[in-house]
Nucleic acid binder design. Structure first.
Lengths: 387, 387
DNA sequence: ACGACTTAATTCAAGGCGTTATTAAAGTGT
DNA sequence: ACACTTTAATAACGCCTTGAATTAAGTCGT
């Protein structure tokens, strides 16, 4: 069963309550003390005390008041945007982006570094340079989203076929350059975190976030928490078998979903169908396919495959919402009705009717934002106690 | 974020600690007070107090002592088997089984009712008769595992195509006949619960339980807890698409996993391959296929499809263990090495190497046992406080 | 402008809980 | 027997939430 860590001592109770209220204020604030009392069943006195605590620590500030209707007006509270700043890093296949946010997640500064070469040491140099360039006074921590499998452990290690990385000890390498608290995670998961907190996933307790780009992956939110599995490599949706014995996938297996709906596959299948494909890079090539009426058959097919893949997510995870993102996913947006139809055909009726299938809300650049939420999530979970 | 319910008041702390220690004693007992201190970081005094509490309530009893090596010997503690009994019910497609257990989950009594007819009212009559026939003095509650989709809500409702049930309000129907606390769940999930606590899943925090019989389904344990999804219909593995556009499935879609590895499909594909199939029911028919050397091709294929399905589970859920069960799954046991090979070919390397693929340990009759653990799980989670 | 009324936030005594330190209990070995 | 070791129970202390009472900050009618 569960080892409930840290919930034993009496003082931990306060930390738990601090965490609960602080999280509510961060995610749904501003809220009044009364709102908090009602939401969590704590007594008014407890809410007052905990809030006073949080205000003493500078974590929470007042944010105006509600109109009264015959009594003392409720004072609104929110997390102080200036309490600290956080840095989010997006390590993609073509560039490193480093971005600074305040605690309201407003972007304050940004630095981009194109990657000609995928040597991890170069990436680390860029990340360090970026942190130095954007960091201000009071940085809470740095979150890094990497496009690859991030194995959490004592020190996170990255396995990324697409980057040519095999067991790169990225966390150790980054720690040598900075004393800031560091959090690494898979880029799809950080993107999903951003969509979950601020985008199309807001409010959903169970959601699946499907990322369709050059690669295809998914991130699952179960009971409000990112689903990680035993070694945090859950969500390898792109390499699930959809067409047994089908097209070869770059992972070495056959019939993977990615071999049908990934950008590479869209282009390849368009070419096979005799569609002219133009452009210097994948993104423009996919755009040219989407714009070509002759490609409608290929696109219909793509939507059908994607729908079947989404149906599998629905059948297995029973989410209340499926959010489709990634640059190719966004590009396929006009085909969403077809995707829904295909998913309806392949999914079980019950779970299907309880799930909505939507496009993401934050665009393709949310990986850094999501990464920046990692240190924030830690702060919230700790009730605002640093270190 | 999370609404942490009931963790607010000071008294809840004691309940939490009672739950932690009681669960440890139930699942891994007998244990000494010292073991508990070490495992959960509670002080010796707190453990002593909580244990004294639990003993006062009759939930925990002493169970011998360890040899001393120079000091006062540690006294072993365990959950009192006689504190209460629990009833587990297995509502299958061919029979209703009702079984009584003590708190050590030792079977005490059993009643079987063959089903000629799947009218829910008949099933309810059988369940009631079974409860009356086996129930003793102090029954903690009744758990019911139903072969169908159990939608949890105010009152659980069952949707089961195979039984011809559409939105049957089974919980309400059963409550009319008894005052005992009632818990309904999907049979695959209760089976998985049994395997998780007492069978091949022991000790795994992340596991996938694959049930292969006439139908095919999965139950997921994530972080020690049954993964339910938004409306507790997660794990519909049998109807995920494995062969896009492939064989028609009885669910109406095409290419479902069940259409390749379910018992019906094994028989159908054997017939198509010209294999003679004999026997009055599916189980003997599948057995005859397995015994026939001419069917080796069909069986190889089945193992390969099953392996691909298992690979999908591994890719998506990243379990540390995959447990294969169900009567057809057990019958396919000799093919396990082929299943592992096929899974290796289709799964991502990392998550695959971290997952073991094993046969279940409890046989096909564990659904009732798992159902009986439902009231026990509730008792443990409540720290032994009834109602 | 003033007082009655309403609602929000704070204060304070009371009761519960876990922790550390201390004491009692129950063994082993010389 | 006596010293030593280890486990279990008890006591003093500080922290936490609760609930009632009190104070603060508005609205509304006259």
């Amino acid at each position: 069963m569960d080892v409930v860590s840290g919930r034993t001592t009496n003082r931990a109770l306060r930390r738990q309550n601090r965490a609960t209220l602080l999280s509510a204020l961060f995610l749904d604030g501003p809220l009044s003390r009364q709102d908090l009392t009602a939401r969590y069943g704590l007594s008014q006195a407890a809410v007052s005390n905990v809030v006073a605590d949080l205000m003493d620590d500078g974590l929470v500030v007042e944010a105006g008041a509600l109109e009264s209707d015959g009594g003392r007006p409720r004072i609104l509270l929110r997390v102080s945007p200036g309490y600290a700043s956080v840095i989010g890093v997006d390590v993609g296949e073509t560039r490193v982006r480093v971005e600074l946010f305040d605690l309201a997640m407003t972007p304050l500064a940004k630095a981009d570094y194109p990657l000609e070469d995928l040597d991890p040491r170069l990436v680390v140099r860029h990340v360090r340079a970026g942190i130095e360039s954007v960091a201000g006074e009071n940085v809470l921590g740095v979150g890094v989203g990497v496009s690859g499998l991030v194995e959490q452990g004592d020190q996170a290690v990255v396995h990324a076929q697409t980057l040519g990385w095999d067991a790169v000890p990225l966390e150790r390498m980054l720690r040598e350059g900075t004393d800031l608290p560091l959090h690494l995670d898979n880029g799809a998961k950080t993107w999903a975190q951003a969509e979950h907190w601020f985008g199309a996933g807001r409010g959903a307790r169970h959601a699946a976030f499907a990322l369709v780009g050059s690669g295809v992956g998914a991130a699952i939110v179960a009971d409000g928490q990112s689903y990680r599995g035993a070694s945090s490599s859950a969500g390898e949706w792109g390499h699930t078998t959809l067409v047994y014995g089908g097209r070869a996938c770059r992972c070495g297996a056959r019939g993977c979903l990615e071999a049908y709906v990934g950008a590479e596959s869209i282009i390849a299948r368009a070419l096979e169908a005799g569609v002219r494909v133009e452009g210097p890079d994948e993104e423009t090539q996919v755009a040219s396919v989407l714009a070509d009426p002759a490609a409608s058959g290929v696109l219909e097919e793509t939507a059908a495959y994607l729908g079947a893949g989404v149906a599998n997510l629905i059948n297995l995870f029973n989410p209340e919402r499926v959010v489709i993102g990634g640059w190719a996913g966004i590009a396929l947006g006009p085909l969403l009705p077809r995707v829904r139809e295909a998913a309806a055909a392949q999914a079980m009726r019950r779970p299907f009717t309880q799930a909505s299938i939507e496009l993401c809300a934050l665009g393709t650049d949310a990986v850094a934002l999501g990464a920046a939420t990692l240190p924030v999530a830690r702060l919230l979970a700790a009730g605002g106690v640093r270190e």
